[in-house]
Design a protein around this nucleic acid. Structure first.
Lengths: 203, 203
DNA sequence: CATTTTACGAAACATAGGTATAGGTATGAA
DNA sequence: TTCATACCTATACCTATGTTTCGTAAAATG
C-alpha cells in the first residue's frame, strides 16, 4: 500500500477507536470535530484514505466508512469447527458419537459458506508433506478434488484416509508422502473434503 | 431480559448479519427493506428492541444502532497475536515497522498471562520436524529454554532463528532438523520464545 | 521550476435517513 | 369490554450528513 501521512494515520486510528467504542463508524463531521478541522478537510482525508485502499465508503451513505485494509482491521474472532475423531481410525465420521471437541480457527482465512471440520492425524503416511502424527487437519467439506490436492477420502467401505489426490487414465491414485507407504489405486472413493490448514501444538 | 418476539429476533439477527458484512449497522430503511415492511414498522421494532435492552440508538443520529446485550454481541473465542515478520530475515523483531498483521489463535490452548507472537518461517532448516517454508510459528515469549525445546533465538548480533535448543557442557547447541544445516555452537544467544504452535495454510 | 499532493476553511447544496402523525388489524391480559 | 402490545401502511417533516464549489498555502515530487 502507499504510505500514509501522519495526519492520515491519525484519522484511521480515530476511526478505529470510534468504532471500538460505539460499534459504528463516525461521520465526516465527527472526524473533523475530533481534530478541530473543517468538514471539507476531514472529507479530504477520508477520500485520500479511500484512494490508498485503507477505507471504503458507501457513496452518499451516511456513516458508512468501512476499514478494508488488513493492517487496520480489528482483530477478528475465530470460527469453531468440530473435531471429528481421527483419520486412520477411519469409520463413521460425521456420526454424532464421533465428536471430539472443537477447534477455533482464525476465520480471516476461511471462506464463508463452506463447511469445515477437523480431524486429528494418525500415523506417518504424510510425513514428507510436513504432516505429523497428532496434527490437526482442518478440512473444507467438498466433494470434488483436483490433481495434487491433499484430501480426506473414504476408500471402499472402511478406511478414511488423508492422501494426495491424482486422477489417472481410468483410475485414481492416492499418494502418501512417505516412501514406506505405497500408493493406493482405486476407483471406489468418496471425497470427504480438502485439506485447508494444519495446526500443530507443542505441549 | 424480556423475551423477544419472533420478528424482533429476526431483526436483531439481520442487524448482526449486516454488521458482520459491512462493518457498520444498517439504517432503519434498510431494515425495513430487508423484511419488506414500512419504515415505521422497522422503526417500531428498533425502538422495541431498545426498550428491551438489546440495542442502543443515538438520538437522531443516522445509522447509529449499537448492540449492547451480551447474548447478541459477537463472541470472540480467539486471541489475536501480532505477526512480526519472519524468522531468517532476522533483524529488528519487536520493532514497530516489523508488524505484519495478526493471526487469531484458539485461546483454549494459550496460557493466560503469557505473551505470544507469530513469525512466518523462511527456509527449510526445520523440515524434518515438519516445519515448512511459509508456516506460521506461534511463539510464547519466554527467556529460558529447556533441552529439546524448539525456540526462537537471536544469535550474536544479527540472525534470528528457529532451532532446537540443547545446553551442553559449556556451550549451547542450536540444532536444525535438516542434515544440510550444521548445528550452531555458541554462548552468545538470547532466547526470544518457545514454539507453541505451527499453523500452515493450504492455498 | 512546474505539477501534483497534502492540508485546510467557509458556505452552500442535496438527500439519506431518523422521527412523527394518522391511521389499520390482531392477540392476549385485566 | 377495554386496554396494552405487536405489527403493519402511507405520507410527511426536518435535520444530520455526504458532497460540491471556491478558495489559500505549504510540502513533496519529478
Amino acid at each position: 500500500m502507499k504510505d500514509l501521512t501522519k495526519r492520515q494515520h491519525e484519522v484511521v486510528l480515530f476511526i478505529q477507536d470510534y468504532l471500538a467504542h460505539h460499534g459504528y463508524p463516525p461521520t465526516i463531521r465527527e472526524i473533523g470535530g475530533n481534530f478541530g478541522i473543517s468538514v471539507k478537510a476531514a472529507f479530504d482525508h477520508v477520500k485520500a484514505l479511500q484512494r490508498k485502499g485503507i477505507l471504503k465508503t458507501g457513496e452518499s451513505r451516511s456513516r458508512a466508512i468501512e476499514i478494508i485494509h488488513d493492517a487496520f482491521l480489528p482483530k477478528k474472532e475465530g470460527t469453531s469447527v468440530p473435531v471429528l475423531g481421527n483419520v486412520a481410525a477411519g469409520m463413521p465420521l460425521f456420526a454424532e458419537e464421533n465428536f471430539d471437541g472443537t477447534l477455533t480457527i482464525p476465520n480471516e482465512r476461511l471462506k464463508r459458506g463452506s463447511r469445515y471440520y477437523a480431524l486429528q492425524v494418525k500415523g506417518d503416511s504424510m510425513i514428507h508433506a510436513g504432516i505429523l502424527d497428532g496434527d490437526f487437519a482442518v478440512i473444507r467439506y467438498h466433494q470434488e478434488a483436483e490433481n495434487g490436492d491433499i484430501i480426506v477420502a473414504r476408500v471402499g467401505d472402511e478406511a478414511v484416509t488423508l492422501k494426495r489426490f491424482y486422477r489417472e487414465n481410468n483410475r485414481i491414485r492416492l499418494q502418501a508422502e512417505n516412501p514406506e507407504f505405497p500408493p493406493i489405486y482405486t476407483q471406489d472413493i468418496q471425497v470427504l473434503g480438502i485439506l485447508q490448514m494444519i495446526i500443530r501444538e507443542y505441549v
